[in-house]
Design a protein around this nucleic acid. Structure first.
Lengths: 148, 148
DNA sequence: ACTAGATATATTGATATCAATAGAAATAGA
DNA sequence: TCTATTTCTATTGATATCAATATATCTAGT
């Protein structure tokens, strides 16, 4: 049989250059590496930093809203909490108001780590923004929010 | 001891709202789910689709440039190829010009799968672009490329 | 109060991601 | 040519990601 038609190379190039999903994955990987490298001295990845920062609130939040905030699957959050619990940086405890649920809270050690990470985030992020043309960062944030 | 100062909640909100890395991860996860769902009927994830599409070229490419194109670590590419090789959609074979390296090539079956996936990508991507204000998609692509 | 459906989370299995490391081959410099 | 360095890829181990599924609990309707 005549292995039918093939996808033209031009189509491949079009998909590569056009696909918003691919561009988002590429940018996400690149930024993840940038912040992972910067945060390595305090023992955090970019994702762990974002997760822990999202737990720094007056009231311990349940898991669902945190997963939604980070736009991740709830099972991903369950897994992501494991290494942080093991290191004693995050506590997961029963929700007295809803026995199905659990609440998340930073420990003192967790807060200390986050405090150490904050200036690293600030300088890394400032350098990143400085590398972009004026106004691009703010516009990009708005565009990314529209996708998530 | 007086557990020192805590990070103010306002700072947390600032980081959450400002961090380009977090926004990129969120958008990347959301788009990955969108395309993963759409491509599920043909048995591909968004990443597998992008990888296979990048292999649809006149000459089989070595691994390094492909990893660079996808902005991923080379070890990630090695791992990502495994399930595609197992299914017989991608071949990895020695590079006759450089005995350290290997070249990547879609099989006929791989091309057929990719062909089946193409219209799904097209409709999904068209719907996505249609959901954004006129001009945003093109601008976003340029901004994302600047980050990767 | 009972029950049906909805909600919150955990577990398992597959894949994705990268750091650290190692091996083999190519390349550049003496 | 010989050697030091660089380049190309694979492996291991840790974490991240999600689908499918299961369990416990809550809530709404009766």
């Amino acid at each position: 049989m005549s292995n039918a038609a093939e996808i033209p190379f031009a189509t491949t190039l079009l998909v590569r250059d056009t696909c918003l999903c691919l561009h988002a994955q590429r940018a996400a990987r690149a930024l993840a590496r940038l912040f992972d490298d910067a945060l390595r001295p305090v023992g955090l990845t970019n994702g762990q930093f974002s997760l822990m920062m999202s737990l720094n609130r007056p009231e311990p939040p349940p898991m669902g809203p945190v997963a939604k905030l980070l736009a991740m699957d709830q099972t991903t959050l369950t897994a992501a909490l494991k290494p942080l619990q093991r290191r004693g940086w995050v506590e997961v405890f029963p929700n007295p108001r809803d026995k199905r649920g659990r609440l998340l809270r930073l420990t003192s050690e967790g807060k200390a780590v986050l405090m150490a990470a904050l200036p690293i985030w600030e300088s890394t992020h400032a350098a990143l923004e400085a590398s972009l043309p004026e106004g691009d960062a703010e516009r990009l944030r708005r565009d990314l929010v529209a996708l998530a």
